[in-house]
Design a protein around this nucleic acid. Structure first.
Lengths: 336, 336
DNA sequence: ACTCGTACCACAAACGTTTTCATACTCCCG
DNA sequence: CGGGAGTATGAAAACGTTTGTGGTACGAGT
């Protein structure tokens, strides 16, 4: 770093003075190089380099009216389902010069709203991942800055989600083929859009095949939630359970085993998400895999498009085909 | 939300005009209320409320010279060890009005440096979690903005870490008591400070008790790393292994089981970190628990102190007593 | 030689705050 | 009744950029 730094950061004026030009010329060399003479450009660039000049972000933001950062709000960083999502979004924006603010709502709707409101001041755009807040709230926030919803679809706000149908179709077919006729769905948070999605799809597919589906819960979408669910599952007299997500599935399995119930011997368990852990436990979990990185990239791309393209028009594109879910059969499902 | 918003955000001038005062008075009402007349204050506040006025962050940053945001750089968000850390830091700063930028280095030293450099422009301070970069790099960055190191100790830069000794002491005692005399350490990333810490402590304690310690690796600190390690473990002819972290421990256990080796029947496994997953697998993992939330709070507090208190003096305080690690005995360790 | 065009650059305004300094008013005391 | 001490407010500078407007110099065309 061949910069001769005297503690204080170099301003544009300093490099202008050093190069013997005006600040505007420096600005232009940096932002519209083609507008300045080659020789001047060289000199300015050299001086900027020498002083280690970095434009002041605040000043830029002030005049340009944008902060070059975006917000990302997720329900729970500790939930392994969101890690690849966060990584995906971050990776995408890294190349674009945008920084991303991350916030964690602790699965709480009120916190979510507070955080989103706070983001309005600091970010140019916002990605709401699996938001819990009401559609009205979402619209109110979307009115203040570009928002895209991930893992939740909306007609009024650009949004992206995976297509839950194929995976659930496959799961129900699988369970039906194994001979199960009475199953349970362990539901997730009541205000979660994806919970409603999953429940409905499951309900429809089961009905089609004459499988009786009892809905249990809601349970908190963590390991401990599944733990709680297990006892209610045993009371419900079912031979297979679909869990809201893998964490819950893992929880049930663990508790079931603790109570001496064999999985899949006596009860089959199907998870949702296919988090890394799902393949690591023994027995590994049968689960519906979700193309999280694709959703993440999609969400990021949509937001970026709204950020650079001025037109707020263009209605949300339909879920792309690569966003389909699919069943991954491992070892927690077996014949009745 | 009784704001009458006409799309464009209200400026301080707008509320000044509405309240019939000068912008300076509005600014004072908001920042030094005691300096303005009670009646004026009431009126200004009301007008601000009515317009939904929110000070423009960029403008504030520009004049105040601070951005009210801090950076947090971690090696891997997907690693469950870091989730509570991130949450802890975020929760701490949430109350202080600072926002936190999160970045993920993908366990890569070069990426880490790049990200840290990028943070310099946008944040007032920086928390480097388990940094891989060289001490020189760290100092170079610390020269540009307040930095605190977490999970790595330094004499020149404020830093905080847990005390690894008690946990390792307990683990070695435990393993020794179970009759093991030849063990392996599955090392983590070569450039990781905590890896060196753990290896050294382990080495010393084992030597004291006449336990032979063979060091294997390095392995990448994930599940798959442990998978790879398992085969080398079998070749090393040991009866117990200490893994760099829980993910690796889980990986070995899984692969060992896959090769028909019973844990803890034939080989005992000790992890490190006590991530949530450690207690969920079967058998649950014996591991050295790390007080991550305490470290997170400590790091955040140290950074905040440097941010508000002007004096950069005060040398880093020694690790507080509550930051001790401790062994959690579960079911992956047993007698030889 | 004069004009016109082009290429390059400087000047200055603007972005929305905070804060210093000055001013006007009020009140109290001598 | 005049002056000094507060108290409350306004005017203006400053923070570091970007960008529109205008001016200068130079070459070419008539």
């Amino acid at each position: 770093m061949g910069a001769s730094e005297d503690g204080a950061r170099a301003t544009i004026r300093a490099v202008a003075a050093l190069a013997g030009v005006s600040p505007s010329t420096v600005s232009r060399t940096l932002n519209n190089p083609e507008l300045v003479n080659a020789e001047t450009r060289r000199r300015v660039l050299e001086c900027a380099e020498r002083l280690g000049y970095q434009p002041n972000r605040a000043a830029q933001s002030l005049v340009l009216g944008r902060t070059m950062s975006v917000g990302l709000i997720v329900p729970d960083i500790a939930n392994p389902f969101f890690a690849p999502f966060i990584k995906g979004v971050e990776a995408y924006f890294r190349q674009t010069g945008y920084a991303v603010f991350l916030a964690d709502t602790d699965e709480d709707g009120a916190t979510e709203v507070r955080l989103a409101e706070a983001m309005v001041e600091r970010a140019d755009g916002l990605i709401l991942c699996s938001p819990r807040m009401s559609g009205m709230r979402v619209r109110s926030i979307a009115a203040k800055l570009p928002v895209v919803l991930a893992h939740r679809l909306s007609r009024t706000v650009p949004s992206i989600s995976m297509d839950v149908q194929p995976g659930i179709e496959q799961a129900v077919t699988h369970i039906h083929a194994l001979g199960h006729r009475r199953c349970a769905y362990l539901s997730g948070p009541r205000d979660s859009w994806s919970n409603r999605q999953r429940r409905k799809a499951l309900h429809d597919r089961c009905a089609e095949r004459g499988i009786e589906l009892v809905v249990l819960g809601p349970y908190e979408p963590r390991f401990t939630g599944g733990y709680r669910a297990a006892d209610e599952v045993l009371a419900a007299d079912v031979t297979a359970v679909f869990a809201y997500n893998d964490l819950v599935a893992l929880g049930v399995r663990s508790r079931l085993e603790g109570r001496g119930v064999r999985v899949p011997g006596e009860i089959s368990v199907v998870g949702f998400d296919d988090i890394p852990m799902a393949s690591m436990t023994s027995p590994p979990l049968t689960t519906v895999a979700v193309p999280v990185p694709a959703v993440a990239r999609g969400a990021a791309a949509m937001l970026l498009a709204r950020l650079v393209g001025g037109a707020p028009g263009a209605p949300p594109p339909p879920p792309a085909p690569e966003l389909a879910t699919r069943l991954v059969i491992r070892s927690t499902t077996g014949p009745t």
